[in-house]
Simulated assay, not measured.
Amino acid sequence: MYTINNQDNKNVRNEGNKLKYLYIYNYSPHEQNLCEMEFRHIFHEDMQTKYYITNQDFDYSRSAYIRGKLNILYESACFDEIVNFIEQQNYCYYDFKVIYLKNEITHVPYQESIDKCKQIALPIAGSVNMHHPQTIFAITKIHEIWYFGIYQNDMNWNQHNDKPYSYSHSLALRDARAVVNIALGNDLSKTIVDPCCGVGTVVLEGLSMNAHIVGYDINKYVAYQARLNLEHYGYDPLLIQRCDMRTLKKTYDVCILDIPYGVYSPFTYQQQCELLEKTRDIAAELVLISHVPMQKELINIGYHMKDQAMIQKGSFQRYITHCL
């Protein structure tokens, strides 16, 4: 591991320190608001572009919005210096390939990008495998700086798309992962409860991130379906139980509440307020999912709102609110 330092318009590796990482984001326009909220909880600053360079080593597979991660090995304003760096390393890799990462900031003509990839590959001993590489080297140019490194883009976050039981009004997988990331931030030791978990969409996504998460649902049939979903993917089905959240005694670090709004059975505003009040007893931190803004209700029961985003599914809106 090493740090890349600017010296005379180039970056030189210093062993024993830290790598830089380039995270490449991709999201639809209607996802931008929630993506930016997730970003703030992971990196603790506002998102400026879809290309984020940092010393923070984050498990990119946790986010459905991160298209890939470049472990930066060298950077320079002069491309030839990157080639010289590679020659000095005496790299030997079998089944590797080199790609150019296009970005929206700096355009590099297609033929030039191909030529640059060939120049990168030439000093690397071993064998090239374009179709099934074991290692992917990548280069990209952002503003006036060339970046070279090892690229990771193994995306397995969508493995739960085909779970046995789901409902049309359930959170989309991408949204559910973002909600869990907002709850966790960078602290995977947090305990999370989803007390109105439905068929377990949020619980499944949390478990795939190795989060300590459990779920409850008042509906016996729905809780049973949620357990079958967990079992289908090899998780302990008993992590989801039938229970009215108003009777919960255990406490957790964070509560993710997708508040019922009466899609399949009547659910009054008063009942919604009762559930909100109960969250104060079971967790110090709340991530609320609601179909209307509930700032007034949250403030009235003593919460301090920290962040909020809005997501839309057709004409149906949801508000994601983080409170302490």
Rank of each mutant, 00 (worst) to 15 (best):
Y91G: 01
V98N: 02
K69V: 07
R67A: 14
G68E: 09
Y52E: 06
D154A: 08
N90E: 15
A125R: 15
K102G: 10
E75V: 03
T140V: 05
K116W: 05
Y94T: 10
I99K: 13
I66P: 00
Y147N: 06
H131T: 14
Q89P: 04
T135D: 03
E112Y: 02
T49R: 11
D154T: 13
S113E: 11
E87H: 13
Q119W: 03
A138P: 08
L70C: 06
E112G: 02
I114R: 15
Y51T: 09
N153W: 04
S61Q: 13
I53G: 01
P109Y: 10
K69H: 06
M155S: 11
Q134F: 06
V83W: 10
R40P: 01
Y110W: 14
A64E: 07
R40Q: 13
D57A: 11
W146Q: 04
Q88W: 00
M130D: 15
C117P: 04
I82G: 02
F79E: 06
E144V: 08
Y100S: 07
K50M: 11
D59L: 09
S76H: 04
I120Y: 00
R40S: 12
I142R: 07
V98P: 01
L70G: 01
P133M: 06
F96L: 09
L122C: 10
A77R: 14
A125F: 00
N84T: 14
I42D: 05
N84H: 12
L122Q: 15
K50D: 15
S76E: 09
N129Q: 12
P109I: 10
Q89R: 14
G126C: 03
Y52T: 08
Y147D: 07
C117V: 08
Y65V: 05
T140I: 02
K141W: 03
